[in-house]
Design a binder for these strands. Structure first.
Lengths: 193, 193
DNA sequence: CGCAAACTCCTAACTATGTTAGGAGAACCT
DNA sequence: AGGTTCTCCTAACATAGTTAGGAGTTTGCG
């Protein structure tokens, strides 16, 4: 009766309710009407379940990132759209955020296949940013830092609220003003001694 | 032979080596020359050990934050000092960062006494920021988001390196330009419909 | 069809975990 | 000196992930 997809869906529910690290194979098995060892017909180990969840989350990220891309010539509008997508994607599911973006499960790291999905997302993000005039790698890093910072604070200190989400537009305007001013007056930093 | 302090120190070593969530009472006991149940003479539970570590980490944060405060009239210099302290404090110890700033251990949350230390730190931080001209709560939130974003990216994607640490000055200048420009031309946002 | 391989699910059991029970011996305090 | 408390032990328990091994069903192919 239970398929891989059903098990993963049940795992998401459990993880959203009790926390990512609190996933229990016994509870998971019962919730799909199985005995615990029967899960091993579908997955090699608990970490293999995490890996399947990781792959699914990364794919959602990739799909939704593409869907969130707006067709506009205004870099600021595009940047805001990207940042909104990112922060709200993270805020929508703490457990998914922890799984994808934090390394919190002791023995777990994504398989190469799953990790590749994440890397593809990152590559597309870099392309999007470049199209907005953000091509300096340092500015890409700064931009991702702003995004993760907003997401992290939102999840840590106001889960379910919008205390940091409502700062997104302001933050992006700040960042955009910064990179455009840099183009005008470059080489402000002094040479190393 | 072993005291509370020795046990906590050994716990930090184990946690730094194997990850925060991988702390094992058996390994911990052996590393201080005890049998596992003997730890219960010093701590009520594993989470009680985490709590003691949390308190110690929060105290370190408070102390080092005070030490990092520079006596200067220049808000930008002061802001840079604060941000440098914060990001480098986080980057210095992943496990400590996870314990203090992320909620990753399933059943753990800090005791009121331990949490108070964190709140005191935050209150002092707010005072410091206010002295730099950052008094709007939204701008305080934006500032902390930038700090945690830099720290989070540094730890997640370049642990031990300086890929985001070296962006700190630039990020603070960006933020400072943002808040000063807001003072000059306020009320840029249009009224809600 | 017939038969073997593969799949799905089970019970029983192994190892490791945090934790409790209960007791022996040392240290401390009137 | 005598009782209390502290420190540490062994034995044991519940729960976790996992493995072994075997039923019953499904599937693939001659």
């Amino acid at each position: 009766m239970a398929t891989r997809a059903e098990i993963i869906e049940a795992a998401w529910e459990q993880v959203r309710a009790s926390g990512l690290a609190a996933l229990s194979l016994r509870d998971l098995a019962r919730s799909v009407g199985m005995q615990p060892p029967s899960l091993y017909s579908y997955f090699d180990s608990k970490n293999d379940i995490y890996d399947a969840m990781y792959a699914q989350g990364a794919q959602q990220f990739l799909d939704e990132q593409r869907a969130a891309t707006v067709a506009t010539d205004d870099p600021l509008t595009a940047l805001k759209a990207i940042t909104h997508f990112f922060v709200e994607f993270c805020a929508a599911d703490v457990a998914r955020y922890q799984l994808l973006f934090q390394r919190t499960i002791p023995g777990f790291e994504p398989s190469p296949a799953s990790f590749k999905i994440s890397q593809d997302s990152l590559a597309e993000l870099a392309t999007l940013l470049a199209r907005c005039g953000v091509s300096d790698p340092a500015m890409v890093d700064l931009c991702t830092a702003i995004g993760t910072g907003l997401a992290d604070q939102q999840l840590s200190n106001d889960p379910g609220g919008d205390r940091w989400i409502r700062l997104i537009d302001d933050a992006v305007e700040m960042f955009y003003a910064h990179i455009t001013s840099k183009v005008d007056k470059p080489k402000r930093r002094r040479r190393a001694r």
